[in-house]
């Protein structure tokens, strides 16, 4: 009896799986696209969703944390990720990659840089001569122009992003480069805190050094990154290095859940081809951050204006 059952079930399973192989069209199950908390990523999520919908797929958006999302992709709660920044999320990404269940799905054309920098008017005002070379920061007269009321011992303030983004990387770098006596690092709580600081510092006319990245909407108004000693593999403290180095010129990757190519072969092929350049991503962010459109409207406008660009991915 038992043998018959197992035989029957084997037959059924193989029949069903044949049906599965024969059926190469995309499943109608929705593709789950994550949205995080910065504009270019959200707009691009709606852009990619729009492209997939135009191919006949169903799409769902879910708000997810930018570090935790790789674990969610691995488990299958989220299907894809379209902005994997090397410097900020590289570690979470490779960890999930090693555990299995997540696939590296190629790079965007855009290269990324995430580091400390300053808006161009800081240099134009001559608040710290010698920038963008980092050695200019060793000058006490320079640090003095960057102090805020809460600075301990009148040190210059550097505003780093939330500690969630890179832990203690920047404070460790400041100490390693011997700038700890002149500068201190404050953690902002969120990206909006960084933009608030940019606006406030400009109004007050005091110098400011904040953490920023490119491609971003600030590219338009003029933003320069400080030239720290170049990044080499393993130079960061978390990898056992001394921490005397800047951020790498990094990749902007895409990632997918391992089942995605099996369930949605066409959408997966499109997503593999999909690649945006720095200026395209900057334009998407600017639609929201500069033109104050909603994310959905911005994506619709972008899709309408750039039909040639994205149609190429679907072929």
């Amino acid at each position: 009896m038992r043998k018959i059952i197992s035989f029957l079930s084997a037959v059924i399973i193989s029949a069903v799986s044949f049906a599965g192989i024969a059926n190469s069209a995309d499943s109608k199950k929705p593709i789950v696209i994550p949205t995080h908390n910065w504009s270019s990523q959200i707009v691009m999520a709606y852009v990619i969703g729009g492209i997939m919908e135009s191919m006949g797929n169903n799409v769902k958006y879910v708000n997810a944390d930018s570090q935790a999302v790789y674990e969610s992709i691995r488990i299958g709660d989220v299907t894809i990720s379209h902005e994997v920044w090397e410097s900020a999320f590289g570690k979470s990404f490779t960890t999930a990659l090693d555990k299995g269940g997540l696939l590296d799905w190629g790079d965007h054309e855009a290269r990324t840089l995430e580091d400390m920098g300053y808006p161009n008017w800081v240099a134009e005002k001559g608040l710290c001569p010698g920038l963008p070379d980092w050695t200019a920061l060793k000058n006490p007269d320079c640090a003095k122009n960057f102090t805020t009321p809460d600075s301990p011992d009148g040190k210059g303030r550097m505003l780093e992003g939330p500690q969630t983004w890179h832990g203690d990387l920047i404070p460790q770098r400041v100490d390693a480069l011997g700038l700890g006596d002149l500068w201190w690092v404050k953690f902002a709580g969120s990206a909006d805190a960084l933009w608030a600081e940019l606006a406030a510092a400009e109004k007050e006319g005091r110098g400011t050094i904040i953490f920023n990245w490119t491609p971003n909407f600030t590219d338009g108004a003029g933003f320069t990154f400080i030239d720290f000693p170049p990044y080499t593999a393993g130079c960061r403290p978390e990898d056992g290095g001394d921490g005397k180095c800047g951020s790498p010129d990094g990749y902007l990757k895409k990632a997918v859940n391992a089942d995605f190519p099996k369930t949605h072969p066409k959408a997966a092929a499109m997503f593999k081809k999909l690649s945006f350049s720095t200026s395209q991503i900057g334009a998407m962010a600017a639609l929201v951050d500069v033109d104050k459109m909603t994310h959905e409207d911005a994506a619709k406008k972008w899709l309408k204006d750039n039909e040639k660009v994205w149609k190429a991915f679907t072929k």
Binding site: E71, T164, F187
Partner: peptide, 11 residues
């Protein structure tokens, strides 16, 4: 609080 915030996205 800053550490709780950090824990939110820490694996």
């Amino acid at each position: 609080g800053q550490y709780i915030l950090k824990a939110l996205s820490d694996k």
